Computed example of a mutant assay.
Amino acid sequence: MSGITYRDASPADAAALAVLARRTFTDTFGHLYTPENLAAFLASHTDEAWTALLADPARHIHVAEVDGELAGYISVGPPTLPIVPDGRPIELRQLYVLKPWQGEGVAAHLMDWAIARGRALGADAMYLSVFVDNARARRFYDRYGFTFVQTYAFMVGTHADEDHILRLAL
C-alpha cells in the first residue's frame, strides 16, 4: 500500500508512541480485562516512559507512518523474558499495528526491520512472547520460523495471561 513510510523513532515520537501503544493494546486485548487491570497496565505507557525508552541506547524502535500519523511500531532490546538463553539474544518487545493498516504489509515490514536490526547488533536469536489465544499473531510468527520455547505468565494488572515464549535463530 502506498503512503506508508518507515523510520527509526526519535525522542519527538514519545507522546505519539504512548498514545499508539495504549490504543493498539486496548483495541487488541482490552476486552479481556477488568477496567482496573487494563488501567494498571496502560499506566506504564506514559509520555515519560516512552521518552526514557527512546533515550535508551539498548532499545531500538521503528515506526510506520501514514500522513504524519503513526500507524504501527516495533521495539527490540535486551531480553527481559524469563528464559535462560545461550549466545547473544535480542527480544522483540512489541509489534503493534492499527487495525486499518493490518493486512497491508506493515507488520511484515516492521518484522523484517527487527530481524535485520537484531542481526546487525550481533544477536544470534530473537525471543518474543505472544498471547496463546492470539491466533493471528501466532500464524504471523510461525511464517517467520519462530518456535515454541515455554509458557509465561504475562501480567496485566493482577491478571495473569498465558503467553508462549517463541524463539527464532538469527
Results as ranks from 00 to 15, higher is better:
residue 4 I to N: 00
residue 80 T to P: 01
residue 64 A to M: 01
residue 146 F to V: 08
residue 18 A to I: 02
residue 136 R to E: 14
residue 86 D to L: 13
residue 152 Y to R: 12
residue 134 N to Y: 10
residue 98 L to M: 13
residue 16 A to V: 06
residue 144 Y to Q: 05
residue 10 S to P: 01
residue 120 A to I: 09
residue 124 D to F: 10
residue 62 H to Q: 08
residue 89 P to T: 05
residue 150 Q to A: 14
residue 24 T to N: 03
residue 156 V to R: 02
residue 36 E to L: 13
residue 48 E to I: 04
residue 77 G to A: 04
residue 118 G to I: 05
residue 103 G to H: 05
residue 100 P to G: 12
residue 81 L to M: 11
residue 9 A to G: 00
residue 8 D to W: 09
residue 69 E to K: 14
residue 98 L to F: 04
residue 134 N to W: 07
residue 160 A to I: 10
residue 31 H to M: 06
residue 81 L to H: 02
residue 54 L to Y: 02
residue 96 Y to H: 13
residue 84 V to D: 14
residue 122 G to S: 09
residue 113 W to G: 09
residue 97 V to D: 00
residue 107 A to L: 09
residue 134 N to Q: 08
residue 31 H to A: 15
residue 69 E to M: 10
residue 98 L to N: 05
residue 128 L to S: 07
residue 149 V to N: 04
residue 139 R to N: 12
residue 19 V to D: 12
residue 130 V to C: 10
residue 75 S to M: 11
residue 88 R to I: 11
residue 50 W to C: 00
residue 165 I to F: 08
residue 3 G to C: 03
residue 29 F to T: 08
residue 65 E to P: 00
residue 51 T to R: 09
residue 150 Q to N: 12
residue 139 R to S: 13
residue 131 F to D: 05
residue 72 G to P: 06
residue 65 E to D: 10
residue 59 R to T: 11
residue 143 R to L: 12
residue 111 M to G: 10
residue 100 P to C: 10
residue 167 R to L: 05
residue 43 A to Q: 13
residue 29 F to S: 07
residue 13 D to W: 00
residue 1 M to V: 13
residue 109 H to K: 07
residue 16 A to D: 13
residue 164 H to L: 13
residue 17 L to P: 04
residue 19 V to L: 12
residue 100 P to M: 04
residue 168 L to Y: 02
residue 16 A to Y: 03
residue 70 L to F: 04
residue 98 L to C: 06
residue 168 L to K: 02
residue 97 V to F: 03
residue 148 F to C: 07
residue 127 Y to A: 06
residue 76 V to T: 15
residue 10 S to V: 14
residue 59 R to G: 02
residue 75 S to T: 11
residue 30 G to W: 03
residue 73 Y to W: 13
residue 17 L to W: 06
residue 156 V to Y: 02
residue 144 Y to P: 00
residue 63 V to L: 01
residue 7 R to A: 00
residue 69 E to W: 01
residue 51 T to C: 02
residue 37 N to G: 10
